[in-house]
Nucleic acid binder design. Structure first.
Lengths: 202, 202
DNA sequence: TGAATTTCTTAATCTAGGTTAAGGAGAACC
DNA sequence: GGTTCTCCTTAACCTAGATTAAGAAATTCA
């Protein structure tokens, strides 16, 4: 049922089978149809989501009313609004399925209890969070260190599979520019080389 | 010696005095003169730094050769290049003292050993990292949801003390625009209301 | 399968913020 | 107590990318 998640945990820490059982007991499985929401702005975030299958996006609405995507979550990624989760105050974010998606839901209230019983998970989440911070840091370097066009080229070279998996206007939003500008870039010579290899995940 | 750090830990988890002793034994104290570096691009990051007194900035050099500040660390903040630390590969970042600064240094090699002996610290760092992710998330909202001028006003209203603590060109870099543009904003009517109250930390 | 909805493209026009250049003023240094 | 750095300001000009407005392709789903 949660084999992908248990395998992910095993990459970082070793659990006894009793502990693995306990993990499973504290999760729920949820299928999310395309365009359905796991979280909407105004709601208080209640859980941590692990993507078993599919793709989620997290976004907020800017002052001008535009959707600004802050991150995607693909298979084997955790996603949540840490800010709302910690403060237990209403979120500014939406978490929505880009394609039909299956997630393991770890309810925040049960999480603390579970971590108390399975201390190895404290370590697991610490390591996962370190990686999230590291990824956000590098994201920052690309966002501020490169021009919009360079960002697009860098990203589509690094994750060619992913680029084909989401609508381009979402990619444009994630990279911090408009879909019109993305079209312009792609129309330029060398705009979208028909690459094949490369990683699939951002 | 490390009372500020032990107090910070105590805000999240309880340590026995033997454990607190062990923490102290695995730290070193370092004083960093103004403009000195704890990390420079090209070096592999070897430690996690906790600011006891002073102010650090983390930045990288963009393609155009400009310094782009990614974060500051004031008293009671941890700072490191998670990316370089995890991969043990050369960093892209500089970590430099903005003012004479004292830090507690937790060497990465010793950190893993220490956490194995004091499991409560796994929880401590997990909680600290959750807060870092939450802060980065909100940072993103301000960065992409507001115009440059709104960013400046929001930031200087939220952290008036901090604005007076660092040179303005650093503030401009952190907020993602040029010092010239910051001057332009401040010259506008209502550009820099002489506020007094408010938080000191970003 | 065909209408409705989403997504993508093109092109003209516009603007927030960057760039360049120069001067001024405070702080540190000798 | 002057000279050298650092930092801040102003102003003219410039550009990357936004906005607006159509229309053209794809998808989706009934």
């Amino acid at each position: 049922m949660y084999t992908a998640l248990l395998a992910h945990i095993a990459r970082y820490v070793a659990l006894t089978s009793a502990e693995a059982q306990l993990v499973g007991d504290n999760l729920t499985l949820q299928t999310v149809p395309r365009k359905a929401y796991l979280l909407a702005a105004g709601q208080t975030c209640t859980a941590n989501y692990f993507v078993l299958q599919g793709c989620l996006r997290m976004y907020f609405i800017t002052e001008k009313g535009a959707e600004q995507i802050t991150r995607f979550a693909l298979e084997n990624w955790w996603i949540t609004d840490q800010s709302s989760l910690l403060s237990q105050r209403p979120s500014e974010f939406f978490i929505q399925a880009v394609e039909p998606t299956t997630v393991a839901v770890l309810d925040y209230a049960r999480q603390e209890e579970l971590l108390a019983r399975v201390p190895a998970l404290e370590r697991y989440f610490r390591l996962v969070l370190q990686r999230v911070v590291a990824a956000d840091q590098m994201r920052f370097v690309y966002q501020f260190g490169l021009s919009a066009e360079e960002r697009y080229h860098h990203f589509s070279t690094a994750f060619p599979g992913f680029v084909q998996r989401v609508p381009q206007y979402m990619l444009a939003s994630y990279l911090g520019f408009t879909p019109e500008f993305l079209s312009k870039i792609r129309a330029r010579p060398g705009g979208h080389p028909a690459g094949k290899a490369g990683r699939h995940e951002p």
